[in-house]
C-alpha cells in the first residue's frame, strides 16, 4: 500500500508501547516470535523499534517513536495497534478499529482512495 499510495499520502509507522512485552500481564514470544521486555526509556524503545523495523522489513516507511509519556498513543487510543487516515484538512478521515481483530488495511485503502478522489 505504501508503494501504491506513497506519492499521495504520507505514511508513518508510529512505534508505541509494547503489546506483549515479556514482563507484561499478557506476555507473548518464543517459537520464532520476538521476546521483548517493556522499554523503560526512550533509548530502549528506539532500540526495540529499530530491530522491529529491520525484522519486519518496514524500512521504506518512516517510523516515529512515541515518547515515554505515550502522548500519541493516549491521544489516538492506539494500543495495541490501530490505523488512522488524517485528511489533507487535518481532520480524521478514517479511524480503524482496535487491533489485532479490527485492524483492517483494506478499510484504510478504501479511505485513501476516497480521500485521493476528492
Amino acid at each position: 500500500m505504501w508503494e501504491k499510495y506513497g506519492d499521495d499520502v504520507q505514511f508513518f509507522v508510529v512505534y508505541i508501547k509494547e503489546a506483549h512485552a515479556i514482563d507484561s500481564r499478557s506476555p507473548m514470544g518464543g517459537n520464532g516470535m520476538p521476546i521483548v521486555e517493556d522499554p523503560l526509556s526512550l533509548w530502549e524503545r528506539k532500540g526495540v523499534a529499530e530491530v522491529c523495523m529491520t525484522k519486519l522489513e518496514l524500512e521504506p516507511m518512516p517510523m516515529l517513536i512515541d515518547d515515554m509519556q505515550n502522548t500519541a498513543n493516549n491521544a489516538y487510543h492506539a494500543w495495541p495497534d490501530r490505523l488512522y487516515l488524517i485528511g489533507k484538512d487535518g481532520r480524521v478521515a478514517y479511524h480503524g478499529g482496535p487491533g489485532p481483530f479490527e485492524f483492517s488495511p483494506d478499510e484504510l485503502e478504501e479511505a485513501i482512495q476516497k480521500e485521493a478522489g476528492q
Binding site: 499520502v9 505514511f11 512505534y15 508505541i16 509494547e18
Partner: peptide, 26 residues
C-alpha cells in the same frame, strides 16, 4: 527513528493526507 528532524503531524495540514500505522513489535 532515523534521528532526523522532529515530525509535527499538523505540518502536513493542507499539504497531503497522513496515514498513521500504530503498533509495536510484540
Amino acid at each position: 527513528l532515523d534521528g532526523k528532524a522532529l515530525v509535527r503531524l499538523s505540518s502536513f495540514r493542507g499539504e497531503r493526507p497522513v496515514a498513521l500505522v500504530f503498533g509495536s513489535y510484540t
